[in-house]
Design a protein around this nucleic acid. Structure first.
Lengths: 419, 419
DNA sequence: AGCAGTTAGTTTGTACCTCGCACAAACTTA
DNA sequence: TAAGTTTGTGCGAGGTACAAACTAACTGCT
């Protein structure tokens, strides 16, 4: 299946294969900004402002961006003509007098984004509208230890089933995957529980089959992007997403952009050390954060303390049992959230992002878990005048955040938001 | 003392008091890029490319930046006319044939930068040429528990003594200070050992007295900038500077710019936790990195192990004694460097910068200490295909790196390098 | 009803920046 | 001496944002 290319301002335009500059020395990656690039940048920023702030009139956008109204008109008009944006009804506005503003927002019928969530053994695909709406969900399973060709066949089939339901060619495809991902080169490095994926150049494969821009990143970073575009991180310029469950991971939104680190390897928080020479970890080291703040620790402690059904313990159940009066559950919950807090404290001391969105198991603990973690963090962080730290949970519709985030990856990486 | 303003392209031009946009919602800090800003940005990038790569011809710069040669000429010509840059002698070049290139570099007689290093009890000031050369050093002492006015008087006097030796008005003044600094607002929040500085709006004060752009940041970040402009970080796009001594601190250069975090509070690594419920720390918590990788720990362990003169132990002496055959020194050195490594490992797992420059006590341990740390880090980090981690020391001329870094702060913050 | 005041969005002309092309200058090689 | 190569400089084209002036639409006062 092939799709036609996009309109001239193109959400999905690929970067022009960054010229090979071989003057070398030490990399020498200075790049000047050209006039034409400038247009693309500003178009991207206007779109992001619309995402971040909801429907807004041209005049509002101009004020928001600190530019002339005419500039906004120039940027926005072609998008309206291409039906990416639509002009809402003239709202009477809150101020008295004056011509009523016409709010602009994304056309619900504009092209959508393809999204893939790749976890060991399962593929989930869907279409995501620019408004965050999810459609055409499809699921499939694959043999984690099987043949690469077989996996690619299943993947292509599932994705085709989803994409074919789109009215128009999607802007692109975003993939969120478990494991270690090289997002620069678009390859899956390793997925512990799915060896079939090792070394798979998935971006190249999908780009070739579907002729669309494709972006890939690891699961926590997709959650981050999902939070940023459609969740509690909307409009924020600095925050982190933290995932806890069988493993721990994180991702950062710094100064208005997704932080990836070299080859996309930033945010592997599970194996930061919080207990020198502590308990052994799967990674072969000792005292990793993962050894004290992930589900295996929780199960082990629940068993040790004699809590019921320790093998299936979750933060959600812990909160429930604590609320029902179990002192043991309360005590374990406090210790668990404190252990989680240490990782956030270290992040805070290092990056000072001040805002954290929790996913996965602790998110299942809801407000109560978040508040406990916030208290621990507050207590453990070196105080700084005027600093407020916010901890939010985004556990509801877990899978949807990851899928929306996968879709958002395409937006983030192909809308040149930052130079 | 007042100085005249700078030429039109102005290295030291202040940002035009970022328009007050009161549309609010959630900050709404989208900013579009204007035409004129673009010019300033590209001028800044060309200058940075010159810094990073040394003298280069227009043609080389054009290749380096991936732009047209004429563009470089347009940017560079006014700077030559204003004597900021000078054209070197035509070098025969390595390639065969063709008109020889005229390398461009900074004019040694161009305006300099004022630099201040502020440590508890002492002020050090100097002038730094764009080439990194240091001139007109002045020192003074102040009463750490005294009167604010008295401190300001000493500071002004010392700085005036230095600045008055400049041939031309400096581009600006950069301040590196111990303690907790709010670099956004240009105030010193707290310096534990110098209460007189608490809450001091130093940037505003100096800006008023000297009518020059002033930038302030904390000591580790100045080291980072010093490394970046004039040291081992030159030309690098991603690296961290780590300082160890009585306290620990760090700073990051991420994607070609200095990372500050909100209100400049990023990089307070000393109080990241590496030992939950470990030894008590000055900050009131337990198991901070500072409790196992700073000098107090080293002294305590040296005493416990019966090493000679434990109160004045340093990494440098430890290396020396180990080289002379002391098994105890060797053993302590290994443990010390391992403890230092844990902090770097956590940084690496979090940000994946791959390159670390050490300052302070461990830097005194030279290559041997660096190599030991590198080995520990290598062993403790989760391996990733193709990843190389570099550990460098920059202990020589410690004070000079901080002063050069202070000067570089002005360049970094007032050369709008990133949009 | 009419007019002033206010805000939104558009039209028009201007300034600025980068790019591609053409060309002179300077040097090497045959 | 001629051909080839590289550097650096004019000049016009194309694209972008901005300022000023204009029209459109609505409120409120007389």
């Amino acid at each position: 299946m092939k799709f036609e290319s996009q309109p001239s301002y193109s959400l999905g335009q690929r970067t022009p294969a960054s010229r090979e500059v071989a003057v070398g020395e030490n990399g020498g990656n200075v790049t000047l900004v050209s006039q034409s690039a400038l247009g693309a940048i500003n178009r991207g920023r206007v779109l992001q402002a619309l995402y971040d702030n909801g429907p807004k009139s041209r005049a509002d956008l101009a004020r928001l961006a600190g530019v002339n109204r005419t500039t906004i008109t120039g940027i926005v008009q072609p998008m309206i003509e291409d039906q990416l944006l639509i002009e809402g009804d003239a709202s009477p506005s809150d101020v008295k007098g004056g011509k009523p503003a016409r709010p602009l927002y994304f056309n619900p019928d504009a092209p959508m984004l393809g999204a893939v969530l790749l976890l060991p053994g399962t593929i989930q695909t869907c279409l995501v509208a620019l408004t965050g709406e999810i459609k055409a969900v499809a699921k499939a399973e694959f043999d984690t230890h099987g043949d690469t060709e077989a996996f690619i066949a299943v993947m292509t089939e599932t994705l085709t089933a989803t994409l074919s339901q789109a009215q128009q060619a999607p802007f692109g495809i975003g993939v969120a995957s478990a494991g270690m991902i090289d997002s620069d080169n678009g390859t899956i490095l390793t997925v512990n529980l799915a060896p079939v994926l090792t070394g798979l150049p998935l971006v190249a494969i999908l780009q070739e089959r579907f002729s669309l821009p494709v972006a890939i990143d690891h699961h926590p970073r997709a959650l981050l992007v999902g939070d940023r575009w459609f969740g509690p991180g909307r409009g924020q310029q600095n925050f982190a997403a933290v995932y806890t469950g069988e493993v721990l991971g994180g991702a950062f939104f710094i100064d208005g952009k997704v932080y990836r680190g070299l080859a996309g390897s930033g945010g592997e928080l599970g194996h930061t050390v919080v207990q020198i020479d502590g308990a052994p970890c799967n990674c072969g080291k000792h005292g990793c954060w993962e050894t004290v703040a992930a589900l295996p620790w929780l199960r082990k402690e629940a068993a040790r303390m004699g809590l019921p059904h320790p093998k299936s313990i979750t933060c959600a159940r812990l909160v429930k049992e604590a609320d029902e009066g179990s002192n043991a559950a309360e005590e374990l919950l406090v210790r668990y959230t404190r252990n989680v807090a240490f990782g956030i404290v270290n992040l805070q001391q290092t990056l000072s992002l001040n805002s954290y969105v929790l996913h996965g198991d602790v998110a299942g603990g809801g407000m109560k878990a978040a508040e406990l973690i916030r208290q621990h963090v507050e207590q453990l962080v070196v105080k700084r005048p005027g600093q407020e730290i916010s901890i939010t949970v985004n556990g509801i519709g877990e899978g949807h955040t990851a899928l929306r985030g996968a879709a958002g990856l395409v937006l983030s990486s192909h809308l040149k938001l930052v130079i």
